[in-house]
């Protein structure tokens, strides 16, 4: 009873504040809080964009009043930034390829298995690292791969090593693959679910080897999931900060590390803003191109109105 009385009272308040005449604005009204939240991000970006167009006097730490592209010119003129950019793009491409190759069979088995238990175990194994976070996972790899880590003490017993397995490029890429695997599998799985298993069976019953079926039937039909996964994995790898800093130890910086250093080591917020804005533009452009050319795949907010 109490609840229904309360609901009635609330209904009264609603009717006063939001009469039925406003009904056609209800949708916009409901979106308002979320739009306002994202506005915090947009406002921050605008602020940073503005900062990137002013020169910071590194002696007095005062921002110049004039608009100038000097920060962008300085960035373009420094070979370091080009090297970091190239390293990040190449790394992200390799990570994307390896992650997709590993993730697709996982998603496929997880969806197709007849055993509910197998499915559960595969799902839990996926969510556990996803929910544990990057720093802790990177720390786990330091324990395993570090100079005085587990593998090296194991090699020591065998009279081998010690080998240098961290603070290099492969270790950063390795950490990124492990970090991004759950994202890839979770984006591919719904696309595999959408494939009618009978189509595969039909292909195989017509004599196609399973690899051919995979290549010509399963993979093309799972394209929406693969596109979404590739986009997310590539962007997250390209813009990652934690793995290059923890597993790379400063030897193999990515763009995000360069942004951080410009802000906090060189203390040049103008230059840092410029590098960050370029990164934002690259990522946004990439997403826009891929989504326009290949469709939003399993990524978008698909609202199916009936």
């Amino acid at each position: 009873m109490g609840a229904s009385v309360m609901l009635e009272a609330l209904e009264g308040i609603r009717a006063t504040l939001w009469p039925r005449a406003f009904k056609r604005f209800t949708g916009a009204m409901l979106l308002l809080p979320a739009v306002a939240l994202v506005l915090v991000l947009v406002a921050g970006l605008a602020w940073m964009g503005d900062a990137s167009l002013h020169l910071l006097d590194t002696e007095t730490f005062e921002t110049g009043a004039d608009y100038t592209a000097a920060n962008y010119r300085q960035m373009g003129g420094q070979a370091t930034y080009w090297i970091v950019l190239g390293r990040s793009i190449l790394g992200a491409a390799i990570v994307t390829l390896v992650t997709l190759v590993l993730a697709f069979p996982y998603a496929y088995v997880m969806v197709r298995t007849g055993s509910a238990w197998t499915r559960k175990i595969l799902l839990v194994s996926l969510f556990l690292p996803f929910f544990i976070g990057q720093v802790v996972r990177a720390y786990g790899w330091l324990i395993i791969l570090g100079k005085e880590g587990l593998l090296n003490s194991l090699f020591g017993i065998l009279g081998l090593g010690p080998f240098k397995m961290i603070y290099n490029y492969p270790s950063v890429l390795f950490g990124l693959v492990q970090y991004l695997l759950p994202f890839a599998v979770l984006l591919i799985a719904p696309a595999v679910t959408a494939i009618d298993e009978e189509i595969e069976l039909a292909s195989e019953s017509l004599g196609a080897h399973w690899l051919r079926t995979f290549r010509h039937v399963t993979l093309p039909m799972a394209k929406p999931g693969l596109v979404a996964a590739a986009l997310v994995v590539f962007t997250l790898a390209l813009t990652d900060y934690a793995m290059p800093v923890i597993l790379g130890g400063g030897t193999n910086d990515f763009i995000a590390n360069a942004v951080y250093d410009a802000f906090f080591r060189i203390s040049d917020s103008g230059l840092g803003s410029a590098v960050a804005i370029v990164l934002v533009l690259i990522a946004t452009l990439l997403a826009a191109v891929i989504l326009t050319v290949l469709g939003s795949g399993t990524l978008g907010f698909s609202a199916e109105r009936r």
């Binding site: 940073m48 813009t239 951080y260």
Partner: peptide, 19 residues
């Protein structure tokens, strides 16, 4: 509303730091 996913975290984070 998808912007938080497409804007790299370092950009979003530094922007919010300044804001």
């Amino acid at each position: 509303l998808l912007l938080p996913f497409t804007v790299p975290l370092i950009g979003a984070g530094m922007g919010m730091l300044m804001l």
